[in-house]
């Protein structure tokens, strides 16, 4: 098994700059062969997207006693893309309590990613 070739090439658009190069990626040996990129950033982006795509999830959770019914949250670090909906389901079952400060941990180590979900806003509660 010298050459393991991924026969169907993957297409994606590079998001490193406004150019938006159309990339075509083929796996060859242990390397990703990227074409269509006009600079080196495109190659790096494609390799990351092919091996371990990650995203920061931003959403809201319910808050009791807050100024509004919801408080915005995010994952402190990017999490594996395939865990997005697992995390969304966990967020739907969580309830925060006011007062809460921006940066407070809402969920520790969400979905075993090693990443915390934190509040992205301060809510001191209803003023009246």
């Amino acid at each position: 098994m010298k050459q393991t070739k991924n026969i169907t090439p993957t297409n994606m658009v590079c998001i490193c700059c406004p150019l938006g190069c159309s990339l075509t990626i083929i796996k060859s040996d242990n390397e990703w062969l990227v074409t269509g990129n006009k600079c080196l950033r495109g190659k790096k982006y494609a390799a990351e997207e092919m091996t371990a795509p990650k995203r920061v999830v931003t959403s809201t959770v319910k808050i009791a006693g807050g100024l509004y019914p919801m408080i915005p949250v995010k994952t402190e670090q990017p999490i594996p893309k395939e865990k997005i909906f697992t995390i969304m389901n966990i967020l739907a079952s969580v309830r925060a309590v006011a007062p809460i400060t921006m940066g407070d941990i809402v969920i520790k180590n969400v979905a075993d990613t090693g990443v915390n979900v934190v509040a992205t806003k301060t809510d001191k509660g209803m003023p009246f």
Partner: peptide, 21 residues
């Protein structure tokens, strides 16, 4: 509540509420 704010002003990627806070 999505991120992408503040890259120029604060030199880091923030959500909207974080930027306003």
């Amino acid at each position: 509540i999505h991120s992408g704010f503040g890259l120029h002003h604060f030199k880091k990627e923030l959500t909207g509420p974080e930027y306003s806070s």
